[in-house]
Design a protein around this nucleic acid. Structure first.
Lengths: 127, 127
DNA sequence: AAGGATTTTGAGACTCTGTCTCAAAATCAG
DNA sequence: CTGATTTTGAGACAGAGTCTCAAAATCCTT
């Protein structure tokens, strides 16, 4: 049986993720954890993030340097608008895009079954 | 003055990229170059790809492992449908998506100025 | 076709992200 | 409190990408 333990490292990580709607890299989290007086090893940070992503509680995103970043995130299908300046993330319902996707479902013989969409710009506070 | 030289490494890389409409990682290119008898150092492969991307002749894409990959690509704004199996890429005009994007342009105070969209599925030969 | 100014290349050291191992520590149930 | 189980941390390791600098290639001029 694999029971799940509630541990200080996991709670510290969750606390940071809960505080801001934006993506954090593992390195960023390590730094924050050090600052806040509850240091957590890199290995544990990676394991915890991977676990959250697997359970669908966190979204995984590769930033433009190819680093894995994570944020707490509703699990349903939707997209993100990401602020170039502060990283703030706003959810965007897939909605109208669906009809576009449907029309493309069979494209040049392709059978499309998934898509990823991201918006970029500046949030209210950063304009 | 910075003149541009035509060199064997650059031509060998271009030849490989031209041959297939799909994204290649630097490592893949190095391997291909070795096989084809014109080995090129990693540094040069990276420099050449970066140069092509800067000139807008190649598209840069991070694969799901965060590795940079490149392909020859028309420079206008469009999107890609990527085959899960063989990597074949088909261009997708942005078209209908524009109206969706326009409607979102101002979202919760966000000023959206860019988006990225990718489709995934199986190409004709891989279905 | 030879010389020389300029650009490009390659080998390898280096950094950084992410993975893995395994003994030690923490968690929890009884 | 004890013991079975899960989790953690330190550090070794792997792989992508960057950087340096001397040597080689390119091209222009004559």
């Amino acid at each position: 049986m694999e029971t799940e333990y509630e541990t200080r490292p996991r709670e510290a990580i969750a606390r940071i993720l809960r505080a801001e709607p934006r993506f954090f890299s593992a390195a960023e989290l390590c730094a924050r954890l050090d600052e806040s007086g509850t240091p957590v090893s890199r290995a544990t940070v990676y394991r915890t993030l991977e676990r959250l992503a697997a359970k669908g509680e966190a979204a995984l995103r590769l930033n433009d340097r190819g680093e894995a970043t994570f944020m707490f995130c509703d699990s349903g299908h939707h997209h993100h608008a990401i602020c170039r300046s502060c990283g703030r993330v706003e959810d965007v319902a897939c909605g109208a895009l669906d009809s576009f996707v449907d029309r493309l479902r069979s494209l040049h013989g392709f059978q499309l079954d998934d898509h990823s969409l991201e918006f970029h710009g500046k949030c209210r506070s950063c304009v």
